[in-house]
Design a protein around this nucleic acid. Structure first.
Lengths: 348, 348
DNA sequence: GTCCCACCATGAAAATTTTCTTGACCAGGC
DNA sequence: GCCTGGTCAAGAAAATTTTCATGGTGGGAC
């Protein structure tokens, strides 16, 4: 009312007949305030032409990239989705990179201070590779936690945190069915099942194979780099002379290695060997375009952020599980197997 | 001394003979405190066995990804470098995505509140695509700013902020010299010079071409997607029938489009046409492996973070320019031009 | 029905942070 | 040389946030 004299929260408190502490809680959304009181404070603020929204301290959520040396497009997209969802609700995302061993006891983990202080970050999204010990450690704090479930080292237990999955099991199943539909029976899976993301994908593959009464067969080269794994696995597969008309690589990057090995062997994709991938990250840049399974990673990020934010509203819930569906995307890396084509040619 | 009774900052203030405000300033590194006083407070804190470090409020720097719909590996790597450098000095990185038009006046820009509040983010790293108006807007705040310079829309003026560049001009020069060294003279540049990153790269190309007394020639397809641009540019180039033995694509992604068009025309890389790229992002996954120019993007990120942090220490400096060198990386996408090879064959 | 206990919203008080004020110091102009 | 204005560190005061204490409420046991 007066000539632009600064209005303090104290003034608002007095005008609304509540304590300064309560106004502080209303403004910053810290602590619980009954809806009635909150509405009253809000109303009085409006009357005093005091813009509460402008004084809200933006709240922060940590995006913890676990045990990955770099920010791969896979995680970038989760991060981007996460940020978009957060901003819509007035949160912001702090990017944190954290490396630790899965066998370090929870109490001995070397966690950056910013994660342990209760007053900086309200919650965490865990992406990358994580393990039970960090989850245990974070459970000791009051932070809200949501974890990208596909890439957590097993074993791990559900708890007071949410997990968001993408349906790689179903994706693996769909891809295998797709290859089978073209007439393939000798389909090999390339990928080391000790990594959970390959293992889940394999589960879908194995189900489809067993439904078709064909044996599930895996090459699991013991190396971490996915591309290298695809390359080496395919080399050894082709060297053995085992019958193989299609290769299902557990990730697009692995499929790149498969392409390389197939080419080096003087064979062509898809004429000699069909190839399938999973994740749709590199597929678009490959020649021929890879048949793969699309994962809506932005949706995964959004779901993770939504979990954390809703958990902050209602802390004492049991852990939820959210499943993001995947879709088969066909490119040009699969074709009917040679024998089938030859048979068809004969028939014609 | 007493039986674990909580020590308050007030106690420390009294013991050190300073005001509570000063202790607060020392602990949180806000405001200026003379070294002498700071040392005294620190000393007394040690004596009282009060761990000041544990109470430091971690400081935050915003990483502003401008006008990019997604977090490309290019920017991911800058972000990762940035985060690494920040953590070393007790800072953390808030990831922000911001879209705005370059022609909106600085005052009218719709900036998220978190960026305008002085008390949340101490500084900003600008990556992605930015323009002068945002720089002007941020100059009105007291935040420290460092901008990734290559991708700022021109024109823009130096000011009270630092700029970190990678040497794409020199990279463009080196790549062109490399192709010339193989015997190429009909080298075309593919990339739209209206984008500063292509323009700078072109500058290096043009210098090398002029030094070799050959004309600089550009195809600049008018489309934003780099891969698409490479594809369309090459198609039109080959359709024209102009002499061309090598194509220098302004980015690896553009080079992917070039590969595609060359293949569709029934030609081979490098036998028929040599291809060079720039940025070393996709090069490793291309067949044949692309000759390109490596940019140490993590170093760019580190340098950006270092600029912001040192500017926070000493705010009133003029803007610095930091240049990160680039290096030529040869793959298998270049070879002597057909004519030269044929001549050599004749000689043999 | 009544007692007990746990929980929770709230105000009061304490602690901390931010703003405002002061006095010292320095550079430049007269 | 002396005044003036500007800058800046630091304390004082104000504002805000956090912690602590309290009283009310509701659910379950007896």
């Amino acid at each position: 009312m007066a000539k632009g004299k600064k209005i303090r929260l104290q003034d608002l408190a007095r005008a609304a007949g509540v304590s300064g502490a309560t106004v502080s809680r209303v403004v910053n959304r810290t602590g619980k305030v009954s809806p009635a009181l909150e509405a009253r404070v809000q109303r009085v603020a409006d009357r005093l032409k005091l813009d509460l929204a402008a004084r809200v301290k933006p709240r922060l959520i940590g995006f913890v990239l676990g045990n990955r040396p770099l920010l791969h497009p896979f995680h970038s997209r989760i991060l981007a989705g996460c940020e978009a969802a957060c901003v819509e609700q007035g949160y912001h995302v702090v990017f944190l990179s954290l490396n630790y061993r899965p066998d370090t006891p929870a109490e001995a983990l070397d966690i950056p201070r910013v994660m342990l202080r209760q007053d900086i970050l309200d919650g965490f999204v865990l992406a990358g590779i994580h393990s039970q010990n960090l989850l245990d450690r974070l459970a000791q704090t009051s932070a809200a936690v949501a974890v990208q479930g596909n890439n957590v080292q097993r074993p791990w237990h559900e708890g007071r945190y949410d997990a968001v999955y993408y349906d790689d099991v179903e994706g693996g199943y769909a891809m295998t069915r797709h290859l089978q539909g073209l007439g393939h029976r000798d389909i090999w899976f390339v990928g080391n099942r000790q990594y959970p993301w390959f293992d889940r994908c394999y589960d879908g593959y194995a189900r489809a194979m067993s439904e078709a009464d064909t044996p599930a067969r895996v090459v699991a080269p013991d190396c971490e780099a996915p591309r290298e794994a695809g390359y080496r696995g395919t080399i050894s597969l082709l060297a053995e002379g085992t019958p193989v008309t299609a290769i299902f690589a557990g990730s697009d990057a692995t499929a790149q290695g498969v392409y390389e090995a197939v080419r080096e062997a003087g064979l062509r994709v898809p004429e000699d060997i069909s190839v399938g991938g999973l994740d749709d990250i590199e597929a678009g840049t490959m020649h021929p375009r890879l048949d793969t399974v699309r994962i809506e990673l932005e949706d995964v990020g959004r779901a993770l952020a939504d979990c954390v934010m809703s958990r902050l509203e209602a802390p004492h819930l049991e852990g939820r599980r959210v499943m993001i569906p995947t879709t088969l995307v066909t490119g040009a890396s699969s074709a009917p197997p040679r024998r089938a084509r030859m048979a068809r040619a004969r028939r014609a």
